[in-house]
Design a protein around this nucleic acid. Structure first.
Lengths: 355, 355
DNA sequence: AACATTTGCTAACACGTTTTAATAGATGCA
DNA sequence: TGCATCTATTAAAACGTGTTAGCAAATGTT
């Protein structure tokens, strides 16, 4: 009867469960949060009442009282990029294993949008935030920390020692890519990059320059940077068109990510340019489709899924074990993958367990 | 002094803002939620206090008291599939425009995982849920509705009139794909499909069969289904290997999505099979990479981004205007895109605004 | 048997916001 | 001036959970 009245409201509270099980609300809370403190018999009774009434804990009430939630925020630069999707998969996986929900924010590379997203996350009182920041400014991240929201940087180095981050060495990546092009004899190399405000683009370019220098050549005459407003296939293709119009095709192009490379490839092929014969091409990220594209793409592989996973584990460790937690700056090393677009075979490593 | 004590706790409450602005907490709430009810002068004062103190509204407290949150849940089957990523982009865009946050859940096609995700969403008291269900069972969706959580189905028809859904006609899609293959002369057609529990797979197969029948042929002898455990490139490639081992290659293959098609294509090319010469191939979804793959893929295009956007707008309209809201079952029509893999040109529609 | 300790549970307050009914002040009308 | 109406604000009561201190009963110790 009383239960029925509540039922019409549509929601079953901890109090309803309590009366049903013949105990006090506090005991229900104990069953949920510290089951060992309650006698097996009553615990059993409470659990039965919970499932009979279809009780679902009110996350907001819980968050409000406990002072922290079971959610983390994930802010990425481009959810349309498989690189970030792979990260997101790793994050979602690790988070849900530990009972956390993930709130997704897509900054689309825009600083104001990133800020709006972070505000939403702050309002939701997420336990922590995983973020691939759009620029180097640590101010808004520090602001989050001051609010008690832990921050782990994804694909961006920490700017302070008491901060976790998970990155892949992009200088090494750029070095690997361009060394490979140089080895294949290229002496005029285009660097198709996204905005220079992105650390990834700068570092990969830096690695490229070092590789040229290490070969005893002059980066300024060998390397020819082409900047695009965003790292998408569309801009890659546009860059190809401009390059073709200029009439000065380089012998090889290092693209700062695979989307740019895919676009560039499409542009070149449409114009009848042979890849790798006339222009060799190498991308970055080794997204799944790199191996499947028109001319299979050489690329720099990153442990993307791991990146998301480990960042999440670090974050949640920091949340759940604040005292034992040791801050870490994890740095992975990237790996060169050679395919057709730089003269390799279509798919050199059929490492699937076929048959 | 009192304010400072609170400051150490790390969080500024509405009460702090109130004392700072010399008004009561209720007024702050009014400024935030019904600004028109408060005099311009005080409103100004309050807003200043808010920014001076760096106040951020506590979402959980708000949700608890107001009875509803400003978040929606999004449950998709495979966040690694660009089809769903595009949907997610549309959802995120529309939601953030209306001031909602998106909680992402990836069911990975697994029913139990989907259920866990829905439980989390119920705990978070999301305002509504956008879901591409893993199967046809309406029970757990009804359970959500009973809890006051609105549900809009994404890429799945509603099973009741008072329920919104946004879909694309998959029977038509299958019909388009196979009609195209028949027109090109194929008389033995493989249908590479995901699990038959997925409505999409069944409907696309149904459309395929109808196309065959409409051509005056017998579907059972023309169409040869191959089922995979999941719609990923990996399983597509495996299917290619099995097909090759069997020695009975069809003249054409209709793949239930582009990931399967990409995998199938990779498998065929590695074995030296010419596409479309020996085997023609058509996929489904027209993901970005379809146009860029080794042999550019013919496909069935869906208005993916729109799907997410419109579903979100329907959901939030249902939430924010419950009385005026009219439930809708929106059905889009898919579109055939012909490329190399069925004998078309690489990229027949360069509709980008180049230059 | 008397006391100390442990175990299992309860009562009551607190978390930060929204909302309702109520109040004080300003304004309009006669 | 007196009364009604309207406007701007407030006080206080929720919302559903977590937590603390404390009580009663059960158990262990001399």
């Amino acid at each position: 009867m009383d239960a029925d009245v509540r039922r019409t409201v549509g929601t079953v509270s901890i109090r309803d469960v309590a009366t049903r099980a013949g105990v006090s609300p506090g005991t229900i809370s104990n069953v949920l949060n510290r089951p060992e403190r309650v006698a097996p018999a009553t615990r059993e009774r409470v659990l039965r009442a919970i499932s009979e009434l279809g009780f679902v804990r009110h996350g907001s009430a819980s968050t409000l009282r406990a002072g922290h939630s079971r959610t983390v925020g994930l802010s990425v630069m481009d959810i349309g990029n498989p690189f970030f999707t792979d990260i997101a998969t790793g994050v979602e996986e690790a988070a849900s294993e530990l009972g956390y929900a993930v709130i997704l924010g897509n900054s689309a590379g825009s600083r104001p949008k990133e800020e709006r997203n972070l505000l939403v996350l702050a309002e939701q009182r997420v336990r922590g935030v995983l973020i691939t920041p759009t620029d180097d400014d640590p101010a808004r991240l520090d602001a989050l920390r001051d609010r008690g929201i832990r921050v782990v940087l994804l694909d961006h180095p920490a700017h302070r020692p008491d901060q976790c981050s998970v990155t892949v060495n992009d200088v090494t990546g750029g070095w690997l890519a361009v060394s490979h092009l140089l080895e294949r004899g290229a002496r005029r190399i285009g660097y198709l990059t996204g905005p220079r405000t992105l650390r990834q683009c700068v570092d990969r370019g830096e690695g490229a320059a070092r590789a040229v220098a290490a070969a005893g050549l002059d980066p300024d005459t060998i390397l020819d940077p082409i900047e695009t407003p965003a790292m998408t296939a569309k801009y890659g293709q546009q860059a190809a068109e401009r390059l073709l119009a200029s009439g000065r095709l380089p012998e090889a192009i290092f693209c700062a990510n695979d989307l740019l490379a895919v676009g560039m490839l499409r542009g070149l092929l449409q114009a009848g340019v042979h890849v790798p014969g006339e222009v060799a091409l190498i991308g970055y990220d080794d997204i799944d489709f790199a191996a499947a594209s028109a001319v299979s793409l050489s690329s720099i592989r990153q442990p993307t899924h791991q990146l998301g996973r480990i960042a999440t584990e670090l974050l949640l460790d920091e949340c759940d074990n604040p005292d034992t937690h040791a801050h870490q700056q994890v740095v992975f090393q990237p790996e060169l993958v050679v395919r057709e677009s730089t003269g390799g075979r279509r798919d050199p490593q059929p490492d699937e367990e076929s048959r």
